[in-house]
Amino acid sequence: MTIRVLLADDQEIVRTGLRTILDAQDGISVVAVASDGGEAVRLARAHRPDVCLLDLRMPVLDGVAATREIAGPGVADPIPVVVITTFDLDEHVHAALRAGARGFLLKDAGPDLLAQAVRAAAAGDALIDPTVTVRLLAHFADSAPRPPAPAEPLTDREEAVLRRVAAGRTNGEVAAELHLSLSTVKTHLGAVLAKTGTRNRVEVARWAIESGLTGS
């Protein structure tokens, strides 16, 4: 099955480069290209791609506002969004995560990581550039309001999984560290998402960091 991608960036050279990279990947196809956030929202609603890849700094609607329109909490049928930026400690990145983005990358992430992020988003998972995952979220943790307590207390195993997800580990890495099967890790993570009221790895990582649950 081909993953259909909408790409939005206000710089033509960047759009061309990203499209070339994505179209060269097996199972990924760019089906729509936008030069501003407003156009990205319109094309997303018209084409219903599997993943939207949005620049954060665009005219008409910036990446945060466009993400909120495409994937925000109030959207009935959200489309997965991955945001891209040249700024690894930009407050707009954090705002995009709050607006519903499933992950983010730096523009110099490279073809492999770009394709991984698109595939992860399409699969209902998330991928954040590992060079900035913890640093960026932790940068805003002190100023962010403390999130509500989980609906039910986390078990020791669930908390162990959560701490590792917040540190940027993949499910496979968590499984190896805790000597669990991949399916068991996914089950624990699903329970954590339900208890914390978060929707994906990005949101639950932010929840953990803002709650002070960091480290292994």
Results as ranks from 00 to 15, higher is better:
residue 92 H to L: 08
residue 187 T to F: 05
residue 176 A to Y: 05
residue 134 V to E: 15
residue 66 A to R: 01
residue 197 G to I: 04
residue 24 A to M: 15
residue 53 L to G: 01
residue 19 R to H: 12
residue 178 L to Q: 10
residue 92 H to T: 02
residue 32 A to W: 01
residue 148 P to T: 04
residue 167 A to P: 00
residue 78 P to D: 10
residue 167 A to D: 04
residue 9 D to A: 00
residue 10 D to A: 10
residue 114 L to E: 11
residue 150 P to N: 10
residue 145 P to G: 15
residue 32 A to C: 01
residue 116 Q to P: 02
residue 37 G to I: 01
residue 57 R to W: 09
residue 9 D to H: 04
residue 176 A to P: 08
residue 198 T to G: 11
residue 196 T to P: 02
residue 184 T to I: 13
residue 95 A to G: 15
residue 101 A to T: 00
residue 129 D to V: 03
residue 78 P to K: 03
residue 190 G to E: 10
residue 77 D to L: 10
residue 22 L to N: 04
residue 113 L to E: 11
residue 55 D to E: 07
residue 207 W to R: 09
residue 47 H to A: 15
residue 145 P to W: 08
residue 193 L to T: 02
residue 56 L to Y: 07
residue 152 E to D: 15
residue 165 V to E: 01
residue 216 S to K: 15
residue 72 G to P: 01
residue 81 V to S: 00
residue 67 T to W: 00
residue 86 T to P: 01
residue 42 R to T: 05
residue 7 L to P: 00
residue 189 L to R: 00
residue 54 L to K: 00
residue 210 E to V: 01
residue 182 L to W: 08
residue 30 V to W: 06
residue 117 A to S: 14
residue 51 V to P: 09
residue 27 G to W: 11
residue 53 L to H: 04
residue 206 R to T: 11
residue 162 L to R: 00
residue 173 E to Y: 07
residue 108 D to R: 12
